[in-house]
Design a protein around this nucleic acid. Sequence first.
RNA 1: GGGCGGAUAGCUCAGUUGGGAGAGCAUCGGUCUUACACACCGAAGGUCGCAGGUUCAAGCCCUGUUCCGCCUACCA
Length: 1079
Amino acid sequence: MNEDFPKRFHFKEIQGRIYQRWLESGAMRGIPDERENRYVIMMPLPNVTGALHMGHAMDNVMQDLLIRWHRMKGDNTLWMPGTDHAGIATQAVVEKRLFELEGKTRHDIGRDALVERIWRWKDEFQARIIEQQQAMGCSCDWTVYRFTMDAVCARAVREAFFRLFQDGLIYRGNRLVNWDCHLQTAVSDDEIVRKTVHSHFWHIRYPFMDAAPGEPAWVTVATTRPETMLGDTAVAVHPDPERVLDASIEDLEARLATAPEKERPDLEAERDRLRLRRSTHIPKLIQLAAMARDGRTLRLPLLGREIPLILDEWARPELGSGCVKITPAHDPNDYDVWLRHKHEIDIINVLNPDGTYNAHAGPYAGHDRMVVRDRVVADLEAQGLIEKIEDHELELGHSDRSKTPIEPYLSRQWFISMGDRPDGVLFGRGTANAFTAPGLAQAAIDVASGRWRTASGRALAFHPDPERYAGTYTAWLAEKRDWCISRQLWWGHRIPIWHGTISRERLEAVSRLAFEEEQEGLWTWVADEDGKLTCPRDVRGGGPFQVLACIRRESDESRLAPLLEAAGLEQDPDVLDTWFSSALWPFSTLGWPDPDTARVDPGQTPLGPQDGTPSFLDYYYPGSCLVTARDIITLWVARMQLMGLYLLGDVPFTDCFIHANIQDGKGERMSKSKGNGIDPLDIIDEYGVDAMRYVLCDMQTGTQDIKLPVQAISPYTGERIDLATARHGRTIFTYIDPANGKEFDVLGTIDDLPRARVTSDRFEVGQLFCTKLWNAARFALINLGRHTFRPLASEELRPEDRWILSRLAGAVGKVTRALEAYDPAGALATAREFFWGDLCDWYLELVKPRLKEDGGAYAARAVLSVCMDHVLRLFHPFVPFITEALWEKLGEQAPVRGLREPLPACDLLMSATWPEVEASWVDESVEQEVAAVQDVVRAIRDLRAQYQVPSSRQVDAAIQAHGEALARIEKLSHLVARMAGVRALTCGPEVDRPRLSAVAVCGDVEIHVAGVIDVEKERIRLTRQRDKIEKELQRIGKKLANEKFLEKAPADIVNKERARHAELRGQLELVGASLRAFE
RNA sequence: GGGCGGAUAGCUCAGUUGGGAGAGCAUCGGUCUUACACACCGAAGGUCGCAGGUUCAAGCCCUGUUCCGCCUACCA
């Protein structure tokens, strides 16, 4: 045994082999069966842009923890893995490389060639991601691996789109979108990062075309984007500036009345400013409002265009000049103004998709917007039309993908209607769970409200903090903003719509075609200019009509598309937002809408019914838990919920576990691009996968962020350098080695600098744990010999046996409860406390002598084997590799384990059962007895340490105690002797104080350790203890002297304090007596 | 500007309905005691961000305040 059990745990020798065993066993697969209890996790798909980082590691480990635990609990588990095509992110990366390596743009190589290259990129990174996940020990079902653009998912995307379209929930409209001029696509709000930039307010004068004497000759408007003036189509003034300003002043007065002293100066200043403004600005604004009513116009500088002065409440009398320029095509608020004044003012788009200005910009056409800005400002200044320029800081949206500033841009896009509909929306059409709700967003809000459940009785709950995250979820959905689902990209699911403006005759041809298609394979709408949809048969007049036609199935496309195109329709070039396909993930992966015909890849598990078992969709939907970080709540959780509710009438999952985000030592978000990111494979290589998992679980408490101090390994010295405090070099990715002043790089982007690997010593803790577990198991197994089971009579159990079993029962319960509460760190702490604190530090030491003797050895081995068995089970979800490896060895030494009966056996720990609390093991009194022993032992050890007695040297001791305490100690005095290194131990109510003995007072127990004494040292130590007791007595005494305390505090609290007071007084007497003995 | 969260030992974090401040790592002292020196034994270390308030009693509840993180917004 000793030979084939290495002294140290070498993780590299087991990791690959163990994972292979799991794979071959098929234990990771989800196979529908007769079990009612199932547990389903849909992996939040990593995108194929790059490799996984520490945040993914946390996410994957949390999922694996839950799935392994549930698998052991006997649930039928499915953990669905996969990757996301991540449209814009992936295309951006591949395009960037194309340009860097070959100097080509996507237009040079064309749509098909670009998509082909992206597929190759995807294959490469998908393989790397799978490698990382397997290295982390992820026990997902690889035989059902999905990709959001594979045949199974693609069919679901198309079907979902069709149904939304058919229900009139998808529309096409002109909207201002966030435009990425670099990638030339619309991006969603989520893809925008805000940065503070230094800028200016430019105050510009717009002269009146026809100012009469006594009237102002111009109005002044201010802007942070002067170039957009080329697209101005009006200037607005408030229709009733006086009233609004007075209302603002009144509002301020009201706030002043109740405002705290601190805020008063600011409020007063603001009130005074507005009061002053009343006289300086209002007369002019009233005059301007009158001029606007009179239909007066302004001359737009530089272009000379005549634009009206209009009345609109968007113009705020309390700000700026009180007038505001209106650029409907390039500002969301101005767009709203345009909607209100459609028939009075124009909307002019001056921007090309690439960020240059178009022909509407006159002489500025063809130049980039930044160039236009400079020239517009220069030209205005030359004409004396710039009144002033102020410095100003503003939060400017930048595209997360291209890092360039976002432009609001008017373009035709596709939207999903999120708001409430007049007739409501039918959810789960054709299912047993069908219901009607006001709108998509509202249903998703209701299901998390705690007040409404689906027909199956399900709802959505967040963990570990239900209120907080339900709050962010609901707040976002409550805005009910329509979801822009089109992207001007080439990589993604193409929108299956053919559209065009065609004659009545052609419309009728298309309608006939749609009518003839079986199973509603083609659906058409006629849209008016506002996007409102009408059924073709209800349209009146001769056209032409804007027609939208959706082909339901890809397989029909080759047949139907030519017919639509012959009728003058064209397929939309856009693709769908990535989140559209991600939102379907909880059921697209299961083969929805028809698992029987889902086209899985060769070698994959079919999703349809097999030999009488239900289909994956029927069996595994609705799922159980989504595990993710909080920044994805709106993107994912909300959208998956509403899609699941809409298409299947039930939630995609009932629980959402929000785990922490990982930050570096400075509290900054970890990211590859900042160079503070850690590759999980580096950690696995250095510390082992179990160590990494252990630490990640240990860090997952309840907080929202976790700081993980990051170090670089110096390429010069090999020393660790803390990146939170290290000095930067020439860029933020380079640092100075404090040992030699040399610079190094953490990203590997600077050619002439050596690259440093980034790691974190925080993972050492996990390695220490694994070593301990390994060694404890090694000890246990060496001592088990070849253990064969026989039923054990309870009389054979000694107190320490009953104690450790009682502790074990307690630990099993506590660990289970912590996992149920989504508290991995709490669960791990409990398990560790039992294993390390109870089993290793006490039980193993206590039974060492017994393992050598004949009488007590069998019981000790049986208990030891049961403890190790349970320890491995409890730790398995956290540290699966080492526990599985030790389980193999335990199985060899003690194939059948148990006390009265054998424990349920299993070849693989992964498939073994989760321990249950054994009520008969719980023994409060033995726990108290041992606790008393531990107190005495610690007191003796403390004395030994004070006198620096080597542990090899035995001492004599005498314990003076009374009543129950004495009985307990006497009963287990042999354990005290063993654990405290005592040779001769005497106990009694009155013991002879050994000559020259050190003394400790522990409760009402007095302990004398003979043979070690230093009078002065004893005096100092005892005096210190006496002072401490006196201080505490004083505190409690004060409390007990307080009549109000005695009156108002609950009786049990008062009694507790009294008891403690009495105990401390006894202790004080003992300490005092000992002190006197030294005088 | 609004919202959410955090501030507890040198570091990273626990602290569950208010009732004697905890863990791990790091530090210090001792020990190679028949699994483990990647260990064991012991010790030291905290005005619980700051200021008020409620209460017999506050790390915990309330108000204010400072700093940090995240989300969010249209302020000319």
